[in-house]
């Protein structure tokens, strides 16, 4: 049986005349962290939005555990096992942190007391428990990133899409985030990770894809991609 969790096949997304994602194919295996790098405007976030259903792709297919999820809605994809965070943190700003973490659990049959206990436990794991009665909007940017990660953990997805998880996060919060990601990988969760922080992405990724102008221009192990002249040219120019 295949251990491929996510399979993207020839995915294309156009905005009018602009081809933001152009025939991209990639795969993420069970327990693997796959990094996706590229300069601004390369199409990384658009690709993520197509994978989790926020955007409808124009062509190609997205498969989760071999099931076609291309035309499913974001909430169906979430319940099928894909969680995500956003480039700019999108917490539920006028809900307290416990309620923020309860949102992904609302569809379950668990009792309200159980949901609260699980949400509190989730906050403890990322060091935000003391702030549990604060609203999302009262957190710093880095704390909001942590809250988003905790929220996605609550969903218990098989695949987690992380969009710039380390951007604007101070080193101590970054450490907590890295610990959580590694812990989840040890629990066989899979990741598609987009980041400008090349140090973190090189450290975490098992496999790397490089996106440029909507196309994959290189892929492979970190050390291979790091030294690929095409990648160096895309990042640094001639």
């Amino acid at each position: 049986m295949s251990d491929t969790v996510l399979e993207v096949q020839a995915l294309t997304k156009r905005f009018g005349g602009l081809v933001a994602v152009d025939g991209v194919s990639l795969e993420v295996r069970k327990g693997q962290i796959v990094g996706l790098i590229g300069i601004n405007g390369a199409g990384k976030t658009t690709l993520m939005n197509c994978v989790n259903g926020i955007y409808r792709s124009d062509d190609g297919q997205v498969r989760l555990n071999n099931a076609d999820i291309t035309r499913k809605t974001p909430h169906e994809i979430a319940l099928a096992g894909v969680g995500r965070t956003f480039q700019v943190p999108r917490t539920f700003r006028r809900m307290d942190l416990i309620d923020n973490l309860m949102v992904p659990l609302l569809h379950t049959d668990a009792s309200d007391a159980d949901l609260t206990a699980r949400a509190e436990d989730g906050l403890r794991q990322v060091g935000l428990y003391e702030l549990r009665h604060n609203h999302g909007e009262e957190l710093s940017g880095g704390q909001q990133k942590l809250l988003e990660l905790a929220r996605v953990i609550m969903l218990d997805p098989e695949l987690i899409l992380l969009d710039e998880p380390f951007a604007g996060v101070n080193p101590s919060l970054c450490r907590i985030m890295l610990q959580q990601i590694e812990k989840l990988r040890d629990a066989s969760k899979s990741f598609l990770l987009v980041s400008h922080d090349l140090t973190s992405i090189y450290r975490l990724s098992d496999h790397l894809y490089v996106l440029n102008q909507g196309e994959i221009i290189a892929e492979g192990l970190v050390e291979d991609v790091q030294n690929d002249p095409v990648v160096i040219e895309a990042y640094l120019g001639n």
Binding site: N52, G53, I54, T73, P74, H75, A78, L79, G83, R84, F86, R90, T91, F92, R93, R94, M95, V103, P104, L106, H107, G136, R151, V152, L155
Partner: peptide
Amino acid sequence: DDVEAADAMG
């Protein structure tokens, strides 16, 4: 608070 984030959370 955020319709897309809510959608993405199931």
